[in-house]
Design a protein around this nucleic acid. Structure first.
Lengths: 207, 207, 207, 207
DNA sequence: CATGAATGAGCATTCATTCAT
DNA sequence: AATGAATGAATGCTCATTCAT
């Protein structure tokens, strides 16, 4: 009866709003002080509520962080996919993918940091770090989309033959680099990097 | 009386050995249970010593982690640079850089994990995460070398004109991706990825 | 506005039913997980209601436990006294007392456990444990009855002279032992122990 | 290396003294405020130390309470057995057993209360209450001794034939009754009860 | 050089209770 | 009459660090 925590029986509007608020506070906390220091007390402080209320709305810290992670992935995926779907050819889609991915980071740096903090700090109950968990294509819609773009480009003859998994990894790695490496941010602005990345990939991918 | 900690006045041989031992135990601990759980007690347990001894040899946990990080960066840099220096042309050097970087990860996975754990968890006293600290060229010998290779290649006409900072970031990102993303490890073996990356970069960089 | 709690002004039928339901859930909870773990949340879960409703019907946890205790004592007393009153002579009454007391435990083990849990865990606001509270004859109808049986037996010459308080304590202690000591339950079945106890007491009490 | 907790590798003298001190504080706390309220903080307060020090010397609260229980059982057993062993005949031994058991309670009421509090409140990790755990003869030296006395008395013809397990339970129950029931303490002094119990048992047991 | 002993601060979590609805 | 939402206080426990030995 009390368990809107895991079973989530009809989360009332006000409860759902609280959950959103808590998750937003968690994101802000992760951005501010990092996963290691992101105690429930710190999150509660930023949300202006008691720590007990967090425990009331989420089964435990693990549960909270998982929900935050899902929330972050969903929102960034939606942003990127929406822009990708507006393009028609594989070439345009690939460009849109890169530009949108980098743009989202520029628009929502806090969310980005929060995502990194969770992925590189959270661990399963078996102590396996999330970043070693290996998101399959099925789990990561962005990776799935990227692979589809590359395969479609090859089928349509727009792209040369290359190892699609490797190329996808290269692209994701290059995008991520701008995310992590903030000296990069100082040296190259987002648009330039975005353009350079698109150009390079096209050069490498083009038949 | 505290001066052997940070200032390192004449580190006696035995003291230096202890420090090495503690750092090695720290690396193992980071690999085993991650930064979040890597308490001094856990590190001490793996080193077979008391936690107090760690506090004796390092100013604090922050100091310890910084030394471990420097140690890890130094060793991986040395490995890569040694192999790069055996090549003559920019093209060969670039290949050597990529292959060696990936090879080091395959040979020393624990060190690799430890490095990731520190970089993505440790924070300065100002709460700036290490991964946002932005290793400048001066601080990161690998980045410096990579940029030199790229510039030299362009000067000698082996490489086309491109934004060297962006290309360097792309390469480092693609290398790092294999490090983080373990689903990649399952899909592509290190040699294949290494070859694909070299091929792609050459395609993109070649005039 | 609080007056239905302790003073019990006109307990409406539905309110009284709820109170019974809560008390029954409390008994079940005490039997399941013990006094220490018997939080209002656990009791509410078993009753299928909210914890707030318990607080609404009982002044506080202390009040609830007191009512449960009274309920348990009443029911077990009624059971035993009913059977004692069907006997005529002091000897028969004493036998009936022992047999019924032990029989009740066998018939209602959950109630028995709940009673033990309360008596040995609950404390007055002055921190006096219930088991030290010393049920006077006036308060404990069973002790009163037992003493009456013994005195009547002595008056009628059926029993020898002995210290009635001591003998009553001995009998109650022996009965209680079967209640607490579950290794006893494994070694001797209830009927045998019951018979042995009757026999021994008769031997000791008989003129 | 830090684990003098469970493995108890050569507990240093000072560590052992601390452990004793903590256990004594625990006994006092249990007597004062009962098991339910006996938090580590309360125990630490009475010991004049920090709660962390308790955690340092005992694995957890469960471990502490188990050690306290063992300590209490050992001391009371030693007291009683010492006095029993000074008697020669089964009859004398039985008397000594009863008298010593009751005397110990009179001399060490706090220890007695602490023992009750633990036995009736502590639970195994499987949530089985200690009082339902069923101390076997092998585990409870007092029960073993009592049974030996009864059997020896029957073999030597001093005692009549009766169910020794039942008689032992009766005796232990009667002794325990004085422990729990403090109204008894007010009505009958220890010596009188002791004498009455001996007399009654002898009457019942004597051939 | 090394340790066991000790602590204060912080952790996630549970609790009985209150209150607006 | 009943509940979901909310909290302050308390819980057992771990942590990095200090210090006498």
């Amino acid at each position: 009866m009390d368990n809107h925590k895991t079973t989530e029986n009809k989360p009332s509007f006000i409860a759902e709003a609280r959950r959103e608020q808590i998750m937003e506070a968690a994101i802000q906390t992760l951005d501010d002080i990092g996963f290691v220091n992101a105690s429930l007390a710190q999150i509660a402080k930023r949300a202006g509520i008691s720590t007990a209320l967090i425990s009331y709305h989420f089964a435990d810290k693990f549960d909270l962080m998982n929900h935050v992670l899902m929330n972050l992935v969903e929102r960034s995926s939606a942003y990127v996919l929406e822009r990708v779907h507006q393009a028609d050819t594989p070439t345009d889609k690939l460009n849109a993918f890169i530009v949108a991915s980098l743009a989202y980071q520029g628009t929502h740096p806090a969310r980005n940091t929060a995502l990194i903090e969770i992925v590189f700090n959270a661990r399963t109950t078996d102590n396996v770090p999330y970043y070693k968990l290996g998101e399959d294509e099925e789990e990561d819609p962005l990776l799935l989309e990227l692979l589809n773009i590359l395969r479609e480009g090859q089928e349509k003859g727009e792209f040369a033959e290359f190892h699609t998994d490797a190329m996808a990894a290269l692209i994701q790695g290059a995008i991520g680099e701008y995310m992590f490496n903030s000296s990069l941010t100082k040296k190259i602005d987002l648009e330039t990097y975005s353009m350079e990345l698109v150009k390079t990939v096209q050069r490498a991918a083009k038949r």
